[in-house]
Computed example of a mutant assay.
Amino acid sequence: MSNRCSICGKGHQTGNLVSHSNIKTHRRWKVNLCSVKAIVDGSTRRIRVCSRCLRSNKVKRAI
C-alpha cells in the first residue's frame, strides 16, 4: 500500500536533516493520511485521504 492520497495524489517529500555541525543526511516527510469511509462512484469504499482533502470537503464521507 503506497503512502499516497487517493484524491489529490499527494505523497512523501524528501529533503535533508541538517545537524548542528552542518552534516546533511537524507530524510522523508510523510503525508498525513486518514483511512475514511467515503462515497466513490455511488458506492461506499474505504480510502486513504490526506487531512487537507478532508478539511477542504473534497471527500463525501459515508455515514
Score class of each variant (00 low, 15 high):
residue 25 T to D: 06
residue 37 K to G: 00
residue 28 R to E: 12
residue 56 S to Q: 09
residue 29 W to R: 07
residue 58 K to H: 15
residue 57 N to K: 06
residue 42 G to R: 02
residue 28 R to F: 04
residue 62 A to G: 06
residue 17 L to N: 10
residue 32 N to M: 11
residue 48 R to L: 05
residue 39 I to S: 10
residue 35 S to P: 03
residue 61 R to Q: 15
residue 10 K to Y: 08
residue 12 H to C: 00
residue 37 K to Q: 03
residue 47 I to W: 11
residue 41 D to K: 02
residue 3 N to D: 11
residue 39 I to Q: 05
residue 56 S to K: 05
residue 35 S to I: 10
residue 11 G to C: 07
residue 50 C to T: 05
residue 51 S to A: 10
residue 14 T to Q: 14
residue 44 T to L: 02
residue 33 L to D: 01
residue 58 K to T: 11
residue 52 R to S: 10
residue 10 K to Q: 13
residue 3 N to W: 05
residue 41 D to W: 07
residue 52 R to L: 11
residue 55 R to Q: 07
residue 49 V to P: 03
residue 16 N to C: 05
residue 36 V to P: 01
residue 26 H to W: 13
residue 49 V to N: 02
residue 43 S to G: 03
residue 49 V to G: 02
residue 27 R to P: 11
residue 46 R to E: 15
residue 1 M to A: 08
residue 10 K to P: 05
residue 49 V to Q: 01
residue 58 K to P: 08
residue 37 K to M: 07
residue 50 C to E: 12
residue 42 G to S: 03
residue 31 V to E: 01
residue 6 S to K: 12
residue 58 K to D: 13
residue 58 K to I: 13
residue 29 W to C: 09
residue 9 G to Q: 05
residue 6 S to G: 14
residue 54 L to V: 07
residue 45 R to A: 13
residue 34 C to E: 13
residue 55 R to E: 15
residue 23 I to G: 08
residue 37 K to N: 08
residue 41 D to Y: 01
residue 9 G to P: 00
residue 20 H to R: 12
residue 10 K to R: 04
residue 31 V to W: 05
residue 52 R to N: 08
residue 15 G to R: 06
residue 22 N to D: 15
residue 2 S to W: 07
residue 9 G to W: 00
residue 19 S to L: 12
residue 46 R to D: 13
residue 2 S to M: 08
residue 28 R to W: 03
residue 24 K to M: 14
residue 20 H to Y: 12
residue 13 Q to K: 05
residue 2 S to Q: 09
residue 42 G to D: 06
residue 61 R to E: 13
residue 8 C to R: 00
residue 40 V to I: 06
residue 26 H to C: 00
residue 59 V to N: 01
residue 16 N to Y: 09
residue 27 R to V: 14
